[in-house]
Amino acid sequence: MKIIKMFFDIEKEEKWLNEQLQKGYRCTNINGFGIYTFEETDNSYVIRLDCQEYMSKRKSEEYIGLHEDFGWTYLKGSWLGGIRYWQKEAGNHNEIFSDRQSKGNYYKRVMNYCLVLGMFCLIYSFMLFSDQPTLYFDGLWSMEGSLFCKALIFETPFVLLKLLPVFMAIIFGISYYKAYQKHSILKE
């Protein structure tokens, strides 16, 4: 079974993945384009998401090796950093964090991750708009009647596409704030 989905919120993604597992599946692959592959199973599994920045090859081996010793399988992660997906057969130890301090540090890393991606989107849209500051082309507003309507409908998808990085920056901003809230609760 393949499902295509897109997430901007790491906790929602984790929750959704585990909902799929509870229906009697286990995840076999996750790719960068948001395609999640599942396979039916009689055993029950859990997935946990971690967020880590760039690691050297040796660090990465240590990170993965330690989790594997605990019975976790590395589903996906990028060497560049970001979200790392861990799956394990459900048992006694179903969490990857066992104290407040480490859970707090995790939210701190999620905050940094959202910040970097959000800034990237913001800079990208800034470049886009400094190149061409208007959304619709100038002549559009002097058109009349049905021609105006057609031109407006024709152009709107392109305008939305141009606004996409702005929307994404806002979404990452919201995710940043959510992680910040959880981080500060744990810090208390």
């Binding site: 971690d50 330690l66 010793d69 605990f70 990857i96 964090f97 066992s98 480490s102 995790y106």
Partner: peptide, 24 residues
């Protein structure tokens, strides 16, 4: 790493069970 988790579980009489990410 994994042996640290086992030893800590022993030392704490089973009250502190470290998870992989926390230990790392």
């Amino acid at each position: 790493g994994y042996a640290v988790m086992q030893k800590v579980e022993n030392l704490s009489h089973g009250t502190v069970v470290l998870a992989a990410g926390t230990l790392y």
